[in-house]
């Protein structure tokens, strides 16, 4: 395949695979915090199930990035031994969970985006990414279904739950711009990575009816300086990494 034999394109692919893998790693890590603390046993099971899927996706994507890079970094070297500026995840995914409603809303917003991303990658021109996307698509559809059902239940539930969900939507909304903010790297990967315009269209088709059924009103778009994909993160990421990486940092050279 053309893109794989040209060094600059390969560097782009590595970077792109890191973006995908870091996204699922960060949300998976955040969802791991819920373990044992959900409102019901069923949601403890569901949230850890989703976290497990997301970390599983990260392992495939980070391993692929490491393999493409060819410098001997495996999934764990990439997850545990990079510092915050080297992470490429969307800012949306590193922020604290908030309450259960805020948590399921973020899962819904991201999973709708993931469904669109995987669909495009599955039919795209890079075979390894297409294979991962094929597996991940089924998982993201399940995540979207679980989270969207909760968004509707909570949005169209009691007065309090509606108020909380509208506030949650307002909280997350500015960070969504980054999903659809196409940069030069994504443009260079035309034919592999999906176009932003297409992603936005598919995301809206999946998400807006859910928000409408939940009686939630999307806030007006606000200006947002997008930086996660380039390694410019919020203050939250450093805390997440400090917790996630401490054993690897404190016991260098250990196999686990």
């Amino acid at each position: 395949m053309l893109v794989q034999t040209q060094p600059p394109a390969t560097a782009d692919l590595i970077e792109y695979a890191l973006r995908l893998g870091d996204n699922t790693l960060l949300l998976g890590q955040r969802l791991g915090e819920w373990c044992g603390h959900a409102p019901e046993l069923e949601d403890d099971i569901a949230l850890s199930n989703i976290a497990l899927d997301l970390i599983g996706q990260s392992r495939l994507l980070l391993s692929l990035a490491g393999e493409w890079e060819g410098r001997g970094r495996d999934e764990d070297a990439l997850a545990y031994l990079r510092d915050a500026p080297a992470f490429r995840n969307l800012t949306l995914l590193e922020l604290p969970n908030g309450d259960f409603g805020q948590t399921v809303l973020r899962i819904a917003l991201f999973s709708a985006y993931q469904v669109a991303v995987w669909r495009a990658l599955r039919g795209g021109g890079e075979a390894r990414l297409a294979a991962i996307a094929g597996k991940a698509l089924a998982e993201s559809r399940y995540h979207l279904r679980y989270a969207a059902e909760w968004v509707v239940r909570l949005g169209d539930g009691t007065d309090e739950s509606r108020r909380r969900m509208q506030r949650a939507l307002t909280h997350w909304w500015p960070y969504l711009a980054e999903m659809f903010d196409e940069d030069a790297l994504e443009r260079r990967l035309d034919g592999v990575a999906p176009q932003a315009a297409l992603l936005r269209k598919e995301w809206e088709a999946l998400m807006l009816p859910v928000l409408a059924e939940a009686t939630l009103r999307p806030p007006a778009d606000t200006e947002y300086r997008s930086g996660g994909k380039r390694g410019e993160h919020s203050e939250s990421l450093g805390h997440v990494l400090a917790e996630m990486q401490f054993l690897q940092r404190a016991y260098p050279g250990g196999r686990w």
Partner: peptide, 18 residues
């Protein structure tokens, strides 16, 4: 779970508590 020292151990632990 948030502190598991490798991604595979993190997955094993997630599956276990589930």
């Amino acid at each position: 779970i948030t502190r598991a020292p490798s991604l595979s151990r993190k997955c094993i632990l997630l599956a276990k508590v589930q």
